[in-house]
Simulated scan of single mutants.
Amino acid sequence: MKTHDDIKAEVEQILRTEWSRRKDQSVPEAEDIQLGNDAMELDATVLYADMEDSTGLVIGYKDWFAAEVYKAYLRGACDIIKNNNGVITAFDGDRVMAVYIGNSKNTSAAKTALQINYLSSKIINPALKKIYPKSTFQLQQAVGVDTGSLFIARTGVRGSNDLVWVGRSANYAAKLCGLRNDTYASFITEEVFNKVHESAKYGGNPKQLMWKKSIWSQRNISIYRSSWHWKP
Rank of each mutant, 00 (worst) to 15 (best):
T136W: 00
S121E: 15
W216E: 11
T45D: 10
W211D: 12
G159M: 09
Y184C: 00
K175P: 01
V11I: 15
A98K: 07
Y100G: 01
K71F: 15
L42K: 06
A142Q: 06
I88S: 03
K207Q: 14
I124R: 05
I81C: 02
E52T: 12
I221W: 05
S20D: 11
T183R: 13
A90W: 09
H197N: 11
S104W: 00
D162T: 08
L42D: 03
W211R: 08
G93E: 13
P232H: 03
Y48W: 12
D94T: 10
F193G: 02
L15D: 03
K231W: 04
A98H: 06
K129T: 07
K134G: 10
N84T: 06
R180L: 00
I221C: 08
I33G: 04
I131Y: 01
H229I: 01
I131P: 01
A39D: 10
K201N: 10
D32M: 08
V164E: 10
K62T: 01
K122G: 05
R75V: 13
N181S: 10
I33T: 10
M1Y: 11
W211Y: 06
I7S: 04
P28A: 03
I123L: 14
V58S: 14
L179I: 02
V164H: 00
V99Q: 06
D63S: 13
I80Y: 08
S227Y: 06
V96A: 14
T17L: 06
K134A: 07
Q115E: 12
E18W: 00
G76M: 11
R22G: 10
Y184K: 02
I81V: 10
K130W: 03
I223A: 02
A67L: 06
I123H: 08
A66V: 01
W228C: 08
E31Y: 11
R75S: 14
A98M: 01
L15C: 04
A113P: 02
T183I: 12
V145G: 04
K111A: 12
D146K: 07
L114N: 00
V27E: 09
A200E: 15
L176P: 13
R180T: 05
D79G: 06
S20Y: 11
G156P: 11
N205H: 09
E29G: 09
P126T: 09
H4D: 13
L179F: 00
D5Y: 02
K212D: 13
T55K: 13
A185N: 06
W165F: 11
N117W: 03
Y100R: 09
K62W: 04
N205R: 07
K2S: 12
R21F: 12
M210V: 08
K23W: 15
S186N: 13
V157Q: 12
A113S: 14
W216Q: 14
R95L: 07
A109V: 02
C177Q: 15
N83H: 04
I124H: 13
S169N: 08
L176M: 13
H229Q: 00
I80T: 11
R158C: 07
